[in-house]
Computed example of a mutant assay.
Amino acid sequence: MIERIEIITPEELKKKLEAGEKLEMVDVREDYEVAQGIIPGAKHIRMGDIPENLDYFDKEKEYIIICRAAHRSEIVCYYLQDQGFKVRNMVGGMIEWTGELEFK
């Protein structure tokens, strides 16, 4: 049986960040997409680079996984959940994000 992936909406995430919550966010988009803006505080690890970056993740923390439209992030969530990590998918992705952006 496949475990359901927990979700968070862009609006819920924005409210948590505005309230000063310390959140672990990972943006799995490609470099050219991130160049158009990333949520401040998010770590950028491309989807294809997740397997070799598992040492970045801590099983005690929960990670919010972000991509453009929430499809790639959902795939990453299933993968990380299978590895024993706590994850949440930001539904709607960056397409629906209305909060602040950081440009790197």
Rank of each mutant, 00 (worst) to 15 (best):
R4N: 07
E6C: 14
E6N: 14
I8K: 00
L13D: 06
K14R: 14
K14T: 13
K14W: 06
K15F: 11
K16S: 15
E18I: 07
E18Y: 08
K22Q: 03
K22M: 05
L23I: 14
M25W: 12
M25I: 11
D27C: 06
E30D: 07
Y32V: 01
Y32I: 12
E33T: 01
G37W: 14
I38C: 08
A42E: 12
H44W: 02
I45N: 03
M47V: 10
I50P: 03
E52F: 08
L54R: 10
Y56R: 11
F57M: 07
D58Q: 15
K59S: 12
E60S: 14
K61L: 06
K61F: 03
I65A: 06
I66K: 00
I66L: 03
I66W: 00
R68C: 09
A70K: 08
E74S: 10
E74F: 08
I75Y: 02
V76Y: 01
C77Q: 10
Y78W: 08
L80I: 07
Q81T: 14
Q83K: 12
K86E: 04
V87Q: 01
R88W: 04
N89E: 00
G92M: 04
I95K: 02
W97M: 06
W97I: 08
L101I: 15
L101Y: 09
E102Q: 09
